[in-house]
Design a protein around this nucleic acid. Sequence first.
DNA 1: CGTCCAGGTCTAC
DNA 2: GGTAGACCTGGACGC
Length: 239
Amino acid sequence: MIGVTLRDDGGKVVAETASRLGQRDAARVSETVARMMRLGDDLAPFYAKVAADDALRWAAAGAGRMLASPTVFEDVVKTICTTNCSWSATTRMTEALVALGGGAFPEPDVLASTPDRWYRGVARMGYRGPYVKAIANDVVSGRLDLESLFVRDGRSDEDVEATLLALPGIGPYAAAHVMQMLGRHRHLVLDSWTRPKYLRLTRKRRAADRSIRHAFSRYGEHAGLAFWLFLTRDWVSEG
DNA sequence: CGTCCAGGTCTAC
DNA sequence: GGTAGACCTGGACGC
């Protein structure tokens, strides 16, 4: 495990470590940081789309690079830990996982060999424990290659979505969420946080998922990103 | 104390 | 294809 500190240097991301790294480790660190900050995504087409958009023009200043985990596996597991529970429960489960990993998120082989009683008794993950362990097992055995989902090798959104939906504990919400982390922004993340927030911002009394999707359909492959930025504009001071 | 629900999903109709 | 119930957990709330 390598401790890395990130800082902003006039618009550039600088990753620093306590001691000098070899070429191999240095390459791994920059590769990981690039994935976490989605530096490989070209958002210019999205920015061009919102240029004439009163609600989202602000985003063209450089918004929309949502922080991802170092691995797809980590994003999948963390996302399962957001389902059907409070945010405090999500952070508690995630903290337990990181403690298990000795300060870093545990590798699949660690999660695969961790006894069920740890999931239940220590992490308090409830029914999610078996889901996570099953996914870890499939990754370790090679039946499942989650990291390949990060590579934009011409694989369609539908294909990636189907792979994610096939995982235990991953439904429509979780698949859309992980896909955002993969730079696939077509699907809207619809859940018990985004739905009410949308109603509040639009001053609507109610809105079916179908009509929310329709409201953002004009953003095409960026509909999910547009939805998310619409909802989180108030997170950015210079809105 | 019981009930409800939180950044849902699964199974069985 | 759509819907009803069950599901770990724990915090909020009413009684």
